[in-house]
Design a protein around this nucleic acid. Structure first.
Lengths: 108, 108
DNA sequence: TTGATAGGCAAGCAAGTACTTGCCTATCCT
DNA sequence: AGGATAGGCAAGTACTTGCTTGCCTATCAA
């Protein structure tokens, strides 16, 4: 089930973490922590960030590799493909908002 | 903010509703209700579905048009584009899961 | 070994949210 | 008009979840 994927994306802090990992791959927990604090003024505890990273990892959006006492986190955007596969995007053809055809007027 | 978008996608029932609207556009509230009950065995009240549709509309994923006492709901997948714009997908180039490069071994 | 760093586990709290129930309005058909 | 259909509003409840605090393990440097 892709339940984990959407649940992971549901939280704004987690999305910010994804942004940070997109900008600099292979960050440790503490690195993510300090970036959230500095750049985004997010006063969140280390444990909070750790839980967020766990959710992101469960969704497959973050992959981890251990190295000594460090644990590096890498972004993996591949699972996002399932979203636009499930609900295909309209072609950016002509005008942006083309009204979908429907039962326009049947009786009058 | 795209907060509404991800919040809307976070719920499995709402995603099923999107599936149904993708299959048949321009459904009324009652139509969606009965489809959820029949096809998906979801015992959810009419008001529940109505609230879900409201959330989807707030996210821009569903557009509505009134016609007499009917209100038709249409799927609009355009907002989904922001997702893959924010975190670009890897090219389906060679092998599917290419490990991202990192500090492989620095000390040993 | 001792201390410092990087991270993990688990219980607890507070806020958000999915869902229901009850009642109300608007449009159509006879 | 009256009833039936399609939908909306609002309060209440039970569950989820984001976040904290406290303590524990593992790795590295002195």
């Amino acid at each position: 089930m892709s339940d984990d994927l959407f649940k992971a994306l549901a939280d704004p802090t987690r999305r910010t973490i994804l942004d940070e990992l997109a900008e600099k791959s292979g960050q440790t927990l503490f690195e993510v922590c300090s970036r959230l604090a500095m750049k985004h003024r997010l006063g969140i505890s280390r444990q909070g960030v750790s839980q967020h990273l766990a959710v992101l990892e469960a969704a497959g959006l973050v992959e981890t590799r251990r190295e000594g006492r460090y644990k590096f986190h890498d972004l993996n955007t591949a699972p996002l493909r399932r979203i636009t596969e499930r609900w295909p995007l309209p072609h950016p053809d002509s005008h942006p908002h083309s009204r979908p055809s429907g039962p326009e007027d049947s009786t009058s």
